[in-house]
Design a protein around this nucleic acid. Structure first.
Lengths: 389, 389
DNA sequence: TTAGTTTGTCTATCCAATAAACTAAGTTTC
DNA sequence: GAAACTTAGTTTATTGGATAGACAAACTAA
């Protein structure tokens, strides 16, 4: 049975309440009259819906504003600390956690290293990190609104980590574990998807409707935001563009394909070549680049070119408004940007190139963590909209 | 100003009218009581909305149905010939046109060859084709509901053909030309997008939410249907996957990139190799394959492999429910399918492979034409929904 | 003080969906 | 074949939103 949700008066009210809340979120501080004008809703309707939002502890009056020759307006604002969200970036050798308010403003932050990668010790550390963040949350009307987690692997709709090669995880029911312990709404997603969201809301991709976030770390992951929404494939995971083959006749990859992009353009690929020059870590390599070492500069220029090859493919396929390069490799921006841009320009169809922006992550290593918090916040608002106010 | 459409009673009525119409479209013949049960709408509401649809010539009563111990139900059906749609596939050396009813059932069909490719002679032929199809339309309540056209090139939001390499067109304002002549709603889109829609509604991809249609002809185009909707990139065109590089170090392509997929796997690529064997046309080549010529079979097997290389990339990136191979190369199915499937299996990530179907177009060369008609039909229903009933 | 302006609320009205009663038109049972 | 039961579709009264317009409150300008 395909029972489409039918339209009734409650639906109208939910829609209009969402419009009012959205208007306040975007333009606060704002008066009722201004909301009415901007939204097209009747003044009386706005008054009534605002009262509901005030009763629901989501909006408050913050005194009067300036008058232009009449009664002074009563200004309204969203109560950002009506609740808090936990965002986690579960990395390969670290856990980065953040507590934010409902606007995404950071309230507390914790980073801790991971020594062991097995699910049990990692979840133990994860629990302690979350416990600590939750204990930092001031009391509020809605408490902890949700927990979002970005993980370096494939995640299914049930929030289980199907496969995380660098953690060597298979089938870890992360959402169930967290839900069982905290009894809170939990969202689990790929690290690149979380990063894409983070950059779209708080970083380089603010207000860009279609963007591709390319997370260049040990491997290469991608998060797609199409029509303002995260795109996930048929079974909930897509964007494995690290395994897009850029050389069909190249070396075999562990994934079964040949000549995968991440074999040429990832941090791992860079470090493999760098070890011949005597560098074992990205940080050391970049320090050498900073010092002007010619061989290192050549290596980085080459990596920029390989990144550009894959990004040109991405632009040709998706024709996005922007491509954002994130994760650890974004630190190498000064030394890869020139060759990267040159390659993309050379290899991209003219019509696409005309409109695409090439950006680097503004949030650096915090993209995924802040994006994960945003996933939790978005879930909170979605549930709000769905409930019969 | 971002004036979100606000919710009011008219919106409810539009939503519920759409639900009722959809229910009838899916399950006709159907009684009012059955609609009420399936949709969850109250019987009285259904009665009232059905009356509106009857008044609007979209639904009619077709006598009583069987009773199971009570009053006999009055059966309803959608009036498929309340209007008609014109669908055009504008090819490189042909125009294929169809007149369908609002269900997409073919009423009349016309194919004509194109000798000259300049915009003026082509539009002349196009007008004559459309004139003739329109004259075939029986009188109806809504008349010609719209015209849809699929073209082999990039199309912008205004319905202008920005660039069609094989027609050598640049900046032809096709929608404006057709709109000016017929005063009807006109939809212009890429041939691959039209084909994707055609196969999703009428062909191999029926009821599949996420599919990639790969149109393998002279070049390779792709149409993406994500979440049941055609995906177009930021500026209205995407899916130039023919120019996805599968060999970053391969031969330069006219597009500026190197080793583009369509240099290896298109009809043109096949025919270039085939000419060494003495074949100049795909049909002749396939006849030779039918006759068991070993060299030709080897050539086709190779093309299958190259197609598989690109499709594996597509599957890794989009993780769709299905990939549909269409256009002229679908005729070669018997000789390319084995190597194609083998290559895709070898080169695709296990998690994605598990769920993806590999299909061949069921509509053959008619995909794009029927998809174009569907674009016009969809436009008609969208306008219906938008109008304050 | 007076006139004009802006904000926000109140009131009467409209409109779509709904539940429940009702009419219509059948079938089943004995 | 009459009574009992079933199902289809309509009518009626009610509910709960949004709205226009009147209005009161609170301000500015002069």
């Amino acid at each position: 049975m395909t029972t489409t949700p039918t339209g009734d008066q409650a639906l109208i009210k939910r829609i209009n309440t969402a419009i009012v809340l959205e208007t306040i979120l975007r333009g606060a501080p704002l008066s009722r009259a201004a909301i009415s004008e901007r939204s097209g809703l009747n003044k009386a309707t706005v008054s009534s819906l605002v009262q509901d939002l005030i009763d629901g502890s989501l909006v408050r009056e913050i005194g009067t504003g300036a008058s232009s020759g009449g009664r002074k307006p009563v200004m309204l604002e969203f109560i950002a600390d009506a609740g808090h969200a936990v965002g986690i970036d579960l990395g390969v050798n670290y856990i980065r956690g953040v507590l934010t308010d409902l606007r995404g403003t950071v309230v507390a932050e914790r980073t801790l290293p991971l020594k062991r990668l097995e699910p049990e010790p990692v979840t133990g550390e994860l629990f302690r990190c979350i416990d600590s963040l939750i204990s930092d949350a001031p009391p509020s009307a809605y408490g902890i609104a949700g927990i979002g987690v970005g993980v370096p692997g494939l995640v299914d709709e049930a929030g289980s980590v199907l496969f995380a090669p660098n953690l060597k995880w298979r089938g870890v029911p992360l959402r169930r574990l967290l839900d069982g312990r905290y009894g809170l709404p939990v969202t689990i997603d790929n690290e690149a998807n979380a990063g894409a969201l983070g950059e779209q809301i708080f970083g380089a991709g603010r207000r860009i409707d279609n963007l591709v976030y390319v997370s260049v770390g040990i491997g290469i992951g991608t998060g797609l935001i199409l029509h303002k929404k995260l795109y996930k494939g048929a079974s909930g995971f897509s964007g494995e563009m690290g395994h897009l083959s850029v050389n069909a006749f190249g070396e075999p990859c562990s994934c079964g394909n040949r000549g995968c992009w991440e074999m040429y353009a990832s941090e791992r690929a860079l470090l493999e070549k760098a070890s011949a020059l005597g560098y074992e870590e990205l940080e050391a390599l970049l320090a050498a680049a900073e010092a002007g070492r010619e061989d290192v500069l050549g290596l980085l220029e080459e990596i920029g070119e390989f990144l550009g090859i894959g990004i040109a493919n991405i632009v040709n396929v998706f024709n996005p408004d922007a491509v954002v390069i994130g994760n650890r490799m974004s630190m190498a921006r000064p030394w890869i940007e020139t060759s990267l841009r040159r390659t993309v320009v050379q290899r991209t169809l003219g019509f696409h190139l005309r409109n695409v922006q090439l950006l680097f992550a503004e949030l650096g290593e915090r993209s995924a963590m802040l994006g994960a918090a945003q996933m939790a916040i978005a879930g909170f608002f979605d549930r709000l909209k769905a409930s019969t106010s």
